[in-house]
């Protein structure tokens, strides 16, 4: 991709880098990357949001670092270099979470560490940051991480609302008085398998609106 130096910071092409991962190229529902951590932390909104922010931070920074170093990294050892860069950033995030948001950090348990092997990050470093300039790489990283975060927050929203009747710990269902009509929380939504089914339904809805994403069996 050749780009002129004078190109505006938010030219159409750059905007596209930021927005296509939100829908057409969504990392989770289209590229099938980074699902591992996406599902396990989505029972409540707060940890899901924190993880999404952590991934945006790690991914933006990793894309920038790899993009800066892209001419110096020997191709044969690039995977180890990428892993080290990501691991270094994740350690920073982990220490920050432990210091300032200890409860959430406990809830996320191993999933902060698993950002290292989150295939979105590796995938975007390989596919984009190694061959592009710093600014587009940053946009690409933030865009993809945001696409990931959006799905994470959507899944968490439905699971927390239907499963515990709360949103971010605030008892929405009780305030609305839904329980008096005989409504009962569906505890099933909190269990792990429902995360998969929720993502499946999100994919279903997305593809019914965006029919070019439909794949043949």
């Amino acid at each position: 991709m050749s780009k002129s130096e004078k190109e505006a910071l938010f030219s159409t092409k750059n905007k596209k880098l930021l927005t296509t991962p939100l829908n057409d190229e969504n990392p989770i529902t289209v590229q099938v990357l980074g699902i591992c951590s996406a599902l396990a932390v989505t029972a409540l909104l707060e940890p899901a949001f924190v993880l999404a922010v952590a991934v945006v931070a790690v991914m933006g920074a990793a894309n920038v670092i790899i993009s800066v170093l892209r001419h110096t990294i020997p191709t044969r050892i690039r995977i180890i270099v990428q892993l080290v860069v990501i691991a270094f950033l994740v350690i920073l995030v982990d220490q920050v979470l432990k210091a300032f948001l200890y409860d959430v950090s406990r809830q996320l348990s191993v999933f902060v560490g698993l950002i290292i092997t989150n295939c979105i990050i590796m995938g975007r470093l390989e596919a984009f940051a190694l061959g592009n300039k710093v600014w587009p790489s940053l946009l690409d990283g933030v865009g993809n991480a945001a696409g990931y975060g959006v799905i994470l927050i959507m899944v968490a929203f439905f699971r927390e609302l239907l499963g515990s009747g709360t949103l971010w710990g605030y008892p929405v269902m009780e305030t609305l008085g839904v329980y008096r009509t005989g409504y009962v929380d569906n505890g099933f939504m909190i269990l792990p398998p429902m995360a998969l089914i929720t993502v499946g339904i999100i994919i279903w809805v997305q593809r019914s609106f965006n029919r070019k994403l439909i794949e043949s069996n």
Binding site: I197, G200, I201, I203, W204, V205, Q206, I214, E215
Partner: peptide
Amino acid sequence: NVPEPLQGLGITFIITGLMGIAFM
């Protein structure tokens, strides 16, 4: 005969979910 938008990835997610319920 899977509904078109569910084909491929979508149905795989849902089946995995059902397998998860079975394993529970």
